[in-house]
Design a protein around this nucleic acid. Structure first.
Lengths: 138, 138
DNA sequence: GACGATGTAACTCTTGGAGTTACGAATATG
DNA sequence: CATATTCGTAACTCCAAGAGTTACATCGTC
């Protein structure tokens, strides 16, 4: 399972920004209130989303965040990549020198199927956009 | 990403048991040595695998663990379900009473796509069996 | 220049996995 | 029967990571 709710929080925040699109920047305090968390938590998450060009930040008074591009062009997979950079599956430390053939070769044997499974997850997430989420809401 | 290496360790342990199939029970110390961890960690994991009928334990002297059924009939999805019972995606706490429509409805809107993505992951994992893994190893 | 916003450091709190020790219960073996 | 070996499990520590919080420098508008 996912170790954090970062992904869902990011989708939440982007949905808010999508609905405010064209109305000027939204400040972290407002997003934080909707997500029910702390503004700093939002700003930290926004840093990662900005790196992925999913949002733009506006500095100074009356600043805040705007969605980086058309919400229809941002998929849940994009968001997932932006905030959950590590692999879905965590390997334990294997010893390639082990006298046990399983220990020595498991990593190599397993990497293919696990990569395939990750791709399946990403492909599925790619089918839904932030627009789909944000404007399914009344 | 996955918060633990439990899944991969379980696949590792089951691969060892698959290769010892028909040669009597394998004790936790031996599996632990291959996985490079502690016997208690293995026994705890085995408790969950036994609950899912993927292994059988043999008590007493000369006891240990045996694989529960034909390794070709155990998929990585079965293993995943057995040891990672929580959802892939962790939701944050939403407030259905919130005045913000996104906060109030996000959970409902998102549940469909997320469930679909989990299914895609499981379907992909279902295509590989413990036999495929254990006997790809020399 | 003052105000309101971001960016970020620093710290704490909490949660969960992992590792370890210990010991009772079960059971094959001599 | 006595012993040795193994599971099952409780109790504890250690560690890592997310989340929350406070604080403050910086930026840009009014």
């Amino acid at each position: 399972m996912l170790s954090s709710s970062r992904f869902v929080v990011a989708v939440h925040a982007l949905s808010v920004l999508a609905r405010f699109r064209g109305k000027g920047p939204v400040c972290s305090a407002l997003v934080a209130e909707s997500v029910h968390t702390n503004p700093v938590v939002i700003r930290r998450l926004m840093t990662e989303l900005e790196r992925a060009r999913l949002v733009k930040s506006v500095a100074g008074r009356a600043g805040g965040f705007e969605i980086g591009r058309d919400p229809a062009e941002i998929s849940l997979a994009d968001v997932y990549f932006a905030v959950e950079d590590e692999n879905v599956f965590r390997m334990h430390k294997t010893d390639p020198q082990s006298s046990c053939p399983v220990a020595a070769q498991l990593g190599k044997v397993l990497s293919g199927p696990l990569r395939t499974a990750e791709c399946a997850l990403h492909s599925s997430l790619a089918k839904t956009s932030i627009r789909d989420v944000a404007f399914a809401i009344v």
